[in-house]
Nucleic acid binder design. Structure first.
Length: 570
RNA sequence: CGGGAUGUAGCGCAGCUUGGUAGCGCACCUCGCUUGGGACGAGGGGGUCGCAGGUUCGAAUCCUGUCAUCCCGACCA
């Protein structure tokens, strides 16, 4: 490819509206162009990266026995009504009507479609297990898209679905996909950590997310992990053993005290000269339009996903001031469950277990109760957010926290879709049974962005060779110099013959411009043809290490050809 | 959903307070010069100033509405 013809426009400055480094670099280096909020065009360079990642995934999945197909992007509401998700999926599902007033939606995921496809084709246990996958556009109408390709509304996903006759068979495929995912991300040059996770709107019991750990804010998920054993989990799913701490106060007599204007836990602890964990705080939520009060130890926070799961809800938000006073007659800051047990749902977090003589709101403005004890032992449920330093549920060593970008996930769905959609096969005894299903996703475009988050420097992107849009760029320093031009094109042609994907920078620009662009776009290798060509030598630069050597053109070609061949052998 | 900010050329921005027929840098085109880390000079093309109304002789500028984008928050006890 000639640089002069490549459809790309690099920018001298970073875009104003970008926050994440991958977003800034993708725009500045000419990989993507925003059409509207959360929706991007993939320009030729980006398209090549996407194809590379897809191809790696395709090879590994095929090797693992899966089969590729392609399903429609637009889906009928009917299907979603059957599975029950038309009601529960929420606003992320973009719905519309066609000219005949038939309700449709843009596919955010494809469990319904694949289930409807296999029903009728897979009739016998003899055809199972089977694993089908596709690369498809997905649309999710995110509340707040951001970070470019890391959280867009429209994105490319590899999604796969497996069908089984038994849990054992599903377990086996789950492990098979786990291994395939490890290999896929390894080949993409990304280190990933599989962590336990909540299965969210997709559903199912067992699930893992493949995280690229980042430690920057760009990683949108918090991951807790143990350095002693292999425990690791998304914050929406992690549990912990709480440290042994003093949870009793010197207030031995239960009484109401005045706490004027003391609204926060911190202020209250100071005011009464106690620890935050001596307070039982009340957090008031509205779950699916119904009030839910969570009683949780003062130093702990509510994990809303865990709470949703605990009450079997779909949509959660904090209660407003008006709602709070309507249900409790009091104000935030002074709430408690006392006297409300029969009126609204109360959840006692596990952290409240074992508290004695504690402090709690009095359901009266500017008043708290001290020296309180549970009159009867409530049922405790774990709905709190883990804090770093709390103990690993497996081995009781302290947990650590890090940020992560979720690039893939695997779920065991069971019969969540096959049952309501009545998708069945006939078993050995002639009985009809619902499929036992698994599902497996990889965010292709997010994987590309994650790779940049992990691999870049002040000059631009540093692509892993396997997913770089091109392997190499040949730069004649001065295209006007006949000798340089001639040798550069010879090298260019030799590389092509060796199967190397190469760009030649044939633009009549100064060397500085070409070098800046090469670094920014992130070509893994650069061959510079300059003055040393008089001695038959060129400069060979490796982007990743910055290493530069002066060698003959043939040596340079050989070096790159070898590295590229290694990719194929894999 | 609430708050704040911003919409002027492909990108980054100035002009708006105090209305007078739109400007700068990058990018683009032509010529010259230059050629190892985003050169220089000269000339040139490109914008119904987000959209719709209103005020005015006259609106990018003032007023009203609307749309879009970006940032923050959604109150813990």
């Amino acid at each position: 490819m000639k640089m002069s013809k490549l459809f790309v426009q690099t920018l001298r400055d970073f875009p104003q509206d970008a926050e994440a480094m991958s977003h800034k670099l993708l725009v500045r280096a000419g990989y993507i162009k925003k059409l509207t909020n959360g929706i991007y065009s993939y320009l030729p360079l980006m398209k090549r990266v996407i194809s590379k990642i897809e191809q790696i995934a395709r090879e590994e999945l095929d090797k693992a026995g899966a089969q590729e197909l392609s399903m429609p992007f637009v889906q009928p509401a009917e299907l979603w009504q059957k599975s029950g998700r038309w009601q529960v999926y929420g606003k992320e599902l973009l719905r519309m009507k066609d000219r005949h007033d038939v309700e449709l939606c843009l596919g955010p995921t494809h469990e319904e479609v694949i289930t409807s496809i296999v029903d009728g084709i897979l009739n016998s246990y003899k055809q199972l297990p089977i694993n089908l996958y596709q690369f498809q556009l997905k649309f999710r109408d995110e509340i707040r898209p951001r970070f470019g390709l890391l959280r867009g509304r429209e994105f490319i996903m590899k999604d796969g679905y497996s069908f089984h006759t038994s849990q054992e068979s599903l377990d086996e495929e789950y492990k098979n996909m786990w291994n395939a995912y490890k290999r896929i991300f390894d080949r993409c040059g990304l280190e990933t950590k599989p962590v336990q996770s909540d299965s969210g709107a997709i559903g199912g019991k067992v699930s893992h997310e493949f995280m690229v750990l980042t430690e920057t804010q760009t990683g949108e998920d918090d991951v807790f992990y143990c350095k002693n054993c292999d425990y690791s989990a998304n914050s929406n799913h992690s549990t912990s053993i709480l440290n042994e701490i003093e949870t009793t106060t010197n207030f031995i007599e239960e009484k109401i005290v005045d706490t004027p204007n003391v609204k926060t836990i911190k202020d209250l602890a100071e005011f009464l000269n106690i620890n935050e964990n001596n307070i039982l705080k009340s957090v008031f939520y509205i779950v699916d339009s119904k009030p839910v009060m969570v009683m949780i130890r003062g130093d702990k926070e509510v994990e809303e996903t865990k709470l949703l799961n605990a009450v079997g809800g779909l949509e959660i938000r904090k209660a407003t001031e008006d709602e709070t006073s309507e249900y409790t007659g009091s104000k935030a800051g002074f709430l408690s469950f006392i006297g409300l047990e029969d009126k609204i749902k109360i959840i006692f977090d596990l952290s409240a277990k074992g508290m004695k003589n504690f402090v709690i709101g009095a359901n009266e403005v500017d008043k708290h109760i001290v020296g309180y004890n549970f009159k009867s032992t409530p049922e405790f449920v774990d709905v709190s957010l883990v804090k770093a330093g709390e103990l690993c549920p497996n081995c009781h060593k302290p947990l650590f926290i890090t940020r992560g970008i979720e690039v893939g996930n695997i779920f065991q769905l069971g019969t969540k879709y096959s049952k309501p959609m009545n998708a069945t096969y006939t078993d050995e005894n002639g009985e009809n049974k619902p499929f036992i299903m698994g599902c497996y996703g990889i965010g292709i475009t997010r994987t590309a962005a994650a790779a940049i988050e992990k691999h870049h420097d002040d000059f631009g992107i540093i692509w892993p060779l396997a997913i770089a849009p091109y392997h190499c760029i040949v730069v004649p320093v001065n295209i006007q110099e006949e000798e340089q031009k001639k040798v550069a094109f010879e090298i260019y042609e030799k590389l092509q013959k060796e199967g190397v994907e190469v760009v030649i920078d044939d633009r009549d620009d100064r060397a500085g411009v070409k070098f800046k662009d090469a670094d920014l776009i992130g070509f893994p290798y650069r061959i510079t043809v300059g003055k040393t060509i008089k001695d038959g030598l060129v400069e060979f630069k490796t982007r990743q290490t910055g290493e530069m050597v002066t060698i003959t053109p043939d040596e340079a070609v050989q070096k790159i050809a070898e590295e590229v061949k290694k990719l194929k052998v894999n």
